[in-house]
Each structure stands twice: as structure tokens, then as C-alpha cells.
Design a binder for these strands. Sequence first.
DNA 1: ATGAAAGCGCTAACAT
DNA 2: ATGTTAGCGCTTTCAT
Lengths: 356, 356
Amino acid sequence: MSKPRSPSIKMVADRAGVSVATVSNVLNGKPSVSPDFALRVQDAVRELGYVVDIGASRLRSQKSQLAGVVVPDLTNPMFASFVSTLEHLARVDGFDLVVVSARNNPEEEADRLRNIRSWRPAGLIVIPCDGSFAERLPGGFSAPVVLADRIPDKPGFDLIAVDNSAAAGAIATHLENQGYKDCLVVGSWLSISNVRERWEGVRGAVKRLGVEVLEIGIDDPEGADRLERRLRGRQLPGALFVLDHGSSLLAYRTMAEIGLSAPRDIGFASFDDMEWMRLVAPGITAVRQPVEDMAEQAWALLLRRIRGSAGDPVTRRLRCAIEIRGSTSRSPHQEAGEAPKGGMTCTLQEGRYSPD
Amino acid sequence: MSKPRSPSIKMVADRAGVSVATVSNVLNGKPSVSPDFALRVQDAVRELGYVVDIGASRLRSQKSQLAGVVVPDLTNPMFASFVSTLEHLARVDGFDLVVVSARNNPEEEADRLRNIRSWRPAGLIVIPCDGSFAERLPGGFSAPVVLADRIPDKPGFDLIAVDNSAAAGAIATHLENQGYKDCLVVGSWLSISNVRERWEGVRGAVKRLGVEVLEIGIDDPEGADRLERRLRGRQLPGALFVLDHGSSLLAYRTMAEIGLSAPRDIGFASFDDMEWMRLVAPGITAVRQPVEDMAEQAWALLLRRIRGSAGDPVTRRLRCAIEIRGSTSRSPHQEAGEAPKGGMTCTLQEGRYSPD
DNA sequence: ATGAAAGCGCTAACAT
DNA sequence: ATGTTAGCGCTTTCAT
């Protein structure tokens, strides 16, 4: 039993009794083929189950219908959804996607970035692990790169992100309006640019609310300890605002373990609105990011760059929505244990969120 | 400004002052290269930022270091985690992965399956959309295929799945032991084999518990209506057992909207244990599937097949764990609204789950 | 140990 | 409208 190779264009040509060039022309929809020949080729293709070898095709034509996608972590629902949307859009435009995950590790990201070049993609969409992404991008990489979601330290890239600062500021203002006096702001790392932007958005927005920040890392037991100690300390903050989904999960679980319940003992809000935040009772006030929009815009931009439109790097900031739910309510009528309620959504208008 | 091409092996050879064959030998670690030449090549590679063209390499060597992965839906956390694990394992073995999502659509799956062949992957790992997967697999596909998670109607495939029937039966027994009299079993489609297996596991396990089943589809408003009507009807079942994650989300939300709370008004259990099920109060009793193990075993098996080990198709069933939490408790001390508690885990022993 | 040359499957340029 | 041929970047004989 020898290894059966996939049928080649030559076999199709032989079977149809035509030349390989004709087969290629039929497959690529070139006009200069007689209907008769086209049919014979299509028959042969079907009978053999022939599928073009995309690698050989690219090699010869020098045009790649392939885009690379690099995300920090596929198991993060935000990124999974981003990739899923991208994948669909790409296929509609006839592109394939090579998707790789850096598993939140800059070194792994650098490895993936190097490796993905061997595919000779026409372009790359990257959600970088952290701000120092530019140093990891292999020199002499000629294909266009569009960054999404996270902002690099160095400018000069096409970028599709959200208005982190404004949205975080809106949450801070909401907390202030609810009468909270002080707020502990928790995030993975301030070295991740949008976490930093969110924190700065909070600081820029508050008037009376006292704020302090705590970094707890990603999957870092020490960071988890720091948070737990802070929440067990005698100076319990009036509210907790968590700046990323991973940290929100951890914070919510930690609160539960300690026996703290929102909003009874402490206000609780989160950047990144995940499904479970509507399911717990009361629901959790959160910033909802337009992930699908980000994917759409990133893809559209990359496609333009691939098609050759040059020009200065584009930066676009998409608006988030704010979901006000029970976890930040100081009105007495909202009780813990009650069924989750609808809540209230507000969006940015003319550069300002108008909550409350 | 013309389009700058990636450096080729020829450019490296010129720069190092050697032949392309020598460059190739250095890159592929062939022993027959003098240290002197090897160094010169490595320098040239670094200076040019050369990365091998994996397509051209495969074309000539006829060996593909590429595996394809097809999943029904990347946004399902189970599948995302499956892919993420696979991706890591594959890279360790020097393989790249082409990942595609069928978006729960058999036609899209068929399209992806056809398309992925043009990459000439060395093998495929597929979580099929539904049981009739075999009909969608293009004829004459010679690379090995390993199925995971969902079971095809036709046998003859390598398969790594979980013990759906036993685990679902254990939940049913648990409900019975808790004193529930009847249970509504909800799933997307019984045509999805593991949903069917779970339902059959329930039926096979119950002695006194009255059971009925309801199919609600995937993202199907009509199905959602059916469920809501059933839960608003006068004959509210004693317990609800939902057989897949998507349906669990819907069911839990629907319950909340109606004002039903578990376990106060109705018992609630789920196949697929997601993070939020520990976060809501009380926690939700659920079957936890060994996703990472499934990915590991699927990859190991595929690698064996790629390396050439023939033999009859292998089927392996992995054991699930049962997480007993407050949502199925009939003891009065567990109250809704209380902080989520640790709960209790039990695993399969000698072919039987021993819950309660 | 090194290089020259053939050829993988395909498309593009050219010839008919 | 169709066929012939060269060559994309690489690995693999096969000489040397």
C-alpha cells in the first residue's frame, strides 16, 4: 500500500483530453474557453475529486489569498468571536486564514510571528500581547499589518480599537453619580495599553470619587493573592471596577469566596461584557465592546492595504456601549438574589457618554 | 514603489557565497555541512530575515507539516479551548494548523472541508456539525481523519469522545436521589449524536423519575418559544436537565425572565460545565468534559496515523466529571442568593458514576 | 563536503 | 480557442 497522492492538474488534463493550461483557465474562470471544453474539464474535476493545490498556485502566480491572524488567547471569548467573524468575512472575499494563538506569551507571539511568515500571507491582523509588539515584528516583513484592540507603544501602524478611555470614564462617572465615595480599579497589567487607557480614562473622569489601581497579572496566583488581601483588609473600597474580562472572572469569584456580594457590600463593574454578567443576579454593570465591528473594520482595512492602497497609517476608535445593571445600584429596591433585570444601555453621543 | 518580495533561498545562497543546496542542507540540519559554511549561511539568513517558504518546501518534498482542524463553532468556549490546546501541541511537534469554523452549518462545513484540501494537509481533526458528516467528506481524500466529540452516524472513523451516556445517566440518578419526581430534558437537536447519547443515557438510568425531551435547535427563536411556553405552562417540571451549553445559556436566561429560580422553583442541571456556572448563586450542577484530554488524545492519534500506523479505526471514550452544586439541591440549607459554594465532584469508577 | 540540475503543481507568457 | 514552455522556491538526487 503506497501513499496515494492527491490528483494533480495534469491528471485532470489527461482525463479531459486537454492541456493543463486549459484546465487552469477553466478553474480560474478565464473567458477564453469553449463551453464544450469547459464541460469536459468540469467532469474530469468532479470524477477525480480534484482540488487545486493552493501552495503551488501561489508559488507560481505570486499572489497569496491568505491572511494571518495572531491573537493573544483563543480561549478568551472576545478574541474567539473576533476570529470567528474574521474567518467568515475572509472566506466571502476568497481568502483563507491561518490563525495562531500566542497564549498570552510575548515569546510565543514572537515565535508565531516568525513562523507565520513562512506561509507568505498577503497580510496580517494582529491583536498584540502587549505594547512592545513592534519589536517582535520580524524586520523586512513586507505584507501589510493591521493591529486590533490593543495599542502598540510605537505609532505607525494601522489600528482598529475602541474608545477605552471614554468608556471607562463613563463607568467612573456612573459610580460617582450613584454616590460611591471610592473605587478600587483592578486590571491585569497596565503595560497592556488598553488596560492603561481605561485606567487613565477613570482618572480623567472622576471628580469626587477616590480611585486607586491594582495590577494582578494574568493567571498569576500572586496577583490573585494581592487582590484577596486587599478585599479582606479593613478598608473595603466602596466599589470595584475591573478593567478586563480575565480579571473580572477572578474578582467576582474572589468576592464570592470572601462572602462579599454586589451591590450589597460593594459596587461592581467590569470592562468587557460577557454572557454570564447578565445571568448572575443582580446583573453586572459592564462596558460592551463592539467586537464584530472591530473584526469587520480590521478586515476591510487589511483588504484595502492588500489591494494596494497606500497612505498614512489609519487609527479608528469604535464606540463601546455601557450596560448599567444591578451590581452598581445603590437604590434599595434592587436586591441580591433577585432575577436579573433588563438593565439599561447607553451609547456615546457626540464624544460623550451620557449615563444616569 | 514596487512590491518587495520575501528573500528567497537563492538570495541567501548568493549572500553566503554558497549553493542553494548547501543553504537547504543547513536549514534542514543535514549533517554533511562544514561548520564554516554553516555559520556563513546562518549569518546570511539572519541578515536577510529569511524564512523558508513552507509551500514551496512541501511542494518539492511531498511532506506536509500541516494539519487541518474543523470545528462547528469557534465561539463555543469548549471548541475554542479544544483548538487552543491542539494548536499548542501541534507546534511542539513542528506542525502548523489551519483552523476553520463551520458556524454550525453543514453546508459551510462541506465547503470548508472541500477548501481545506487545497492546503494538502497531512491530516484532519474534525468535530462534525452533525451525524451525517461522512457524506460531506470529499471522496478520495487520502489524509487520515480523526473525529472528536461528536459521533458520526456511520462507523469507520477514528474517534475521541466522552462517555455521554454514563455521565448523563449519573445526573439523572442524582436528580432521582434528590427526590425529584419528573424532569424536562432539553437539547439542541437529537440529530447531534452526543445530545442523543445523553438523552438515551438519561432514559436508561432512570427508575422512578419521569422524563420527557424537548428539542430547541441552535439559535432558533421558535425553539426558544417552545421552551418558554413549556416553562410557563401549568405543569412545571420538577427539574430541568439541559444537554448542551448553548441550550443551557438560553434555558437559564429564560428561567430568569419568567422569574423561576433554581433550586427554589425547579431543579437545574447542565451538560457542559462553563465558568459562569460556578459564579451564579447557587452554582449549577453540571457535567464537566475533559476537553484538553480530548485534544491531546486526538492529536496523538492523528500523529500516529500521519506517521503511518495503519489498523482498524480506534474509538476512545473519555470520562467526564460530575459537579454537584446548589442548583439541584432539595435540602433547605442551600439558599438562592447565597454566595456560590464549593460543591462536590465525583468521577466515574469502574464503569459507574457514584454520586450522592 | 559541495554544487549542478531536475522537478514538485501550478499559472502566465507566448505561440499557434 | 488551445497548446507549449518556462519558472515560482524549494528539496533531492547525482556528480564531483
